[in-house]
């Protein structure tokens, strides 16, 4: 494009943004809303993930041993399991120790244990898992292997908890795309409409441009760039909005939960996510305006 054309197009865009200021602002605002909802989902996802990571530190797998396994064999099994790559630590709990700990947890009520056989509770090896191996799938795989070992009677793990977390994460993921996708569609249609307004407002000018032989691209470019600018402004607004909401919420409301997160801090969007949101805004604006130009500028 020649430099005269650049000056020309820039002038057109600036003029249209000024003339239809409120329309453009509204559209950018709606894009900002859409992108901040989407970005909000990303934020929630990241932080829930971090939260889950924090909570998973407490995931334990209990390997209950059969009655025939004596303390020496139990200790041997503990040593063997401790060497598993998934296992951070392993502790052997004999029948006697299990009974003792159980009594302690009951405290003043421990009287109800009197008369019961101290051999009632099974011996176990209690495992803590390493951080990379706490996903539902990894835990299930490990549990299957453990259950197949000789002397192992039963394996217990926080199944419902893992399942709930998995549901929560999938739920957020789905909501992100359903709600986000719906808003994207709405924002897209609004961009198409706004650019149509801009085109209609300049119908006479477009006709004159065509009559003096202006190249097609020169006539259309300003409208497409208008859409791009809208998208970029929308993305900028969305990021500012998210940042503000994030600071406000984490400083106040959610602060007490911060300690539960791995790394002990809420995380804002990463640099890559910033870029993604800006690109999404750009794409939304550009695609919307291109469609509008294609449909409404003959």
């Amino acid at each position: 494009m020649k430099s005269t054309h650049v000056v020309f197009v820039a002038g057109r865009v600036a003029r249209s943004l000024r003339e239809l200021f409120w329309t453009h602002l509204l559209t950018a605002g709606i894009m900002a809303m859409t992108l901040s909802v989407f970005g909000g989902f990303l934020l929630v996802q990241d932080n829930v993930r971090a939260l889950v990571r924090g909570w998973s530190d407490e995931i334990q797998v209990f390997v209950y041993l059969g009655d025939g396994v004596d303390p020496a064999a139990g200790e041997a099994l503990r040593a063997r399991l401790a060497a598993y790559p998934e296992v951070k630590s392993a502790r052997y709990v004999s029948k006697a120790r299990a009974w003792e700990e159980f009594g302690k947890t009951l405290g003043s009520q421990s009287g109800i244990l009197e008369g019961l056989d101290p051999g009632t509770l099974p011996a176990s090896v209690d495992l803590e898992l390493r951080s990379g191996h706490r996903s539902r799938e990894a835990v299930l795989a490990l549990v299957r292997r453990l259950a197949a070992l000789e002397g192992v009677q039963d394996v217990e793990y926080p199944e419902t908890w893992l399942e709930k977390m998995r549901l929560l994460m999938t739920g957020i993921e789905w909501l992100k795309w359903v709600v986000g996708g719906f808003l994207f569609l709405v924002a897209f249609l609004i961009v198409v409409g706004t650019i149509k307004l801009a085109i209609v407002a300049r119908q006479d000018e477009i006709e004159i441009m065509q009559l003096v032989g202006a190249p097609d691209g020169l006539i259309k470019a300003p409208f497409v760039i208008e859409g791009m600018v809208q998208g970029l402004i929308g993305a900028g607004l969305a990021l500012a909005l998210l940042r503000a909401a994030f600071s406000l919420l984490t400083a106040d409301l959610l602060a007490p939960f911060g300690a539960l997160i791995a790394g002990e801090q809420f995380v804002f969007l990463s640099a890559a996510q910033h870029v993604h949101l800006v690109l999404m805004g750009w794409l939304l604006g550009t695609a919307g305006s291109m469609l509008s130009v294609k449909r409404h500028l003959a």
Binding site: K2, S3, T4, H5, V7, F8, R15, D204, E205, E207, I208, M209, L211, V212, G213, A214, P215, L218
Partner: peptide, 29 residues
């Protein structure tokens, strides 16, 4: 081309209206 109703762009001054036709050919500003 000269039209009966002139077909000038109302928000551009006389000079800009005239140079518009030259601008689209790509000559320098």
């Amino acid at each position: 081309l000269v039209f009966q109703d002139f077909k000038l762009i109302p928000h551009m001054n006389a000079l800009e209206n005239v140079s518009l036709a030259a601008d689209v050919t790509g000559v320098s500003w």
